[in-house]
């Protein structure tokens, strides 16, 4: 089994601080981490390899320092990691990101399954997985919470929807996105950490994977962030007073009016 995992490096927190004077984001001291939802994707890939044999290749599109994130995935069981980095990729929206990833997948070739996280901490769209599947013209299943079986180039999974679970089967190769319910990611092993230190991380540029630069980066992205602002939270709350009994009494009165 040839398993490809897509990961993204993201700022390590959503508790973004805002400078009250300038009303801008404060980035200082925020460490970059592997997108938490991608840890489940990686773990599932490694588990599938343990079950069915094969190889786990991790790819990420990002700036040169995303190499750190890739090394971390090697300590967690990935065999190989590839960094897709080129100034032509900067400013990519989900369409352009998926396009670049699809070109990398095409170069890797012979993949059986591509696993993405359900969404990222920063962009937070959850669109890259499904868009990627169409660019590769292969089937797609979202929110997978369990891989039941892979057999004869078919995969059977459980996926989560609002109303419950669906059991779905499709052919391989396919793209799946995983929910956090799917597994509990392991911690880095000592051997893995050693391997991560010395592992060679390949860097592929636009030219290496045949990306048409007018379809990548800011030039190739249909969407543009045109404004960023901070939500105003204006609010009047009433803290109820008195003894606990009195407070509950007051609350019950107010409740009766609403319902």
């Amino acid at each position: 089994m040839n398993i490809v995992i897509c990961i993204k490096q993201v700022p390590g927190t959503t508790e973004i601080k805002i400078d009250p004077k300038t009303n801008t984001l404060v980035r200082e001291g925020v460490k970059s981490i592997v997108n938490p939802f991608d840890a489940y994707a990686l773990e599932e890939g490694v588990r599938l390899k343990e079950r069915y044999g094969g190889k786990v290749t991790v790819i990420t599109m990002g700036p040169p320092q995303a190499e750190e994130a890739l090394r971390e995935t090697i300590s967690l069981g990935a065999d190989d990691a590839i960094l897709l980095s080129d100034r032509a990729f900067a400013g990519s929206d989900t369409w352009a990101t998926s396009y670049v990833l699809s070109k990398a997948a095409a170069k890797i070739a012979n993949y059986d399954i591509i696993i993405c996280g359900r969404q990222t901490l920063d962009g937070d769209t959850g669109q890259v997985g499904p868009e990627l599947s169409e660019m590769l013209k292969i089937p797609f299943i979202s929110y997978v919470s369990k891989v039941e079986e892979i057999k004869d180039k078919h995969i059977r999974v459980q996926r989560m929807i609002e109303e419950g679970h669906e059991e779905i089967e499709t052919t391989l190769p396919a793209v799946i996105t995983v929910a956090k319910e799917i597994n509990v990611p392991r911690l880095p092993s000592l051997r893995g950490s050693m391997k991560a230190k010395t592992a060679k991380i390949a860097v592929w540029t636009a030219a290496d994977i045949g990306v048409e630069t007018d379809k990548a980066g800011i030039s190739g992205s249909p969407t543009r962030v045109v404004k960023i602002f901070f939500p105003k939270r204006e609010h009047k709350s009433e803290m109820l007073e008195g003894t606990l009994e009195e407070q509950v009494e007051k609350l019950a009165e107010r409740l009766e009016k609403i319902v």
Partner: peptide, 12 residues
């Protein structure tokens, strides 16, 4: 975005 801390206006 950023878990509701920041609003972004996007155009296509």
């Amino acid at each position: 975005t950023f878990g509701g801390n920041v609003m972004a206006t996007i155009m296509c």
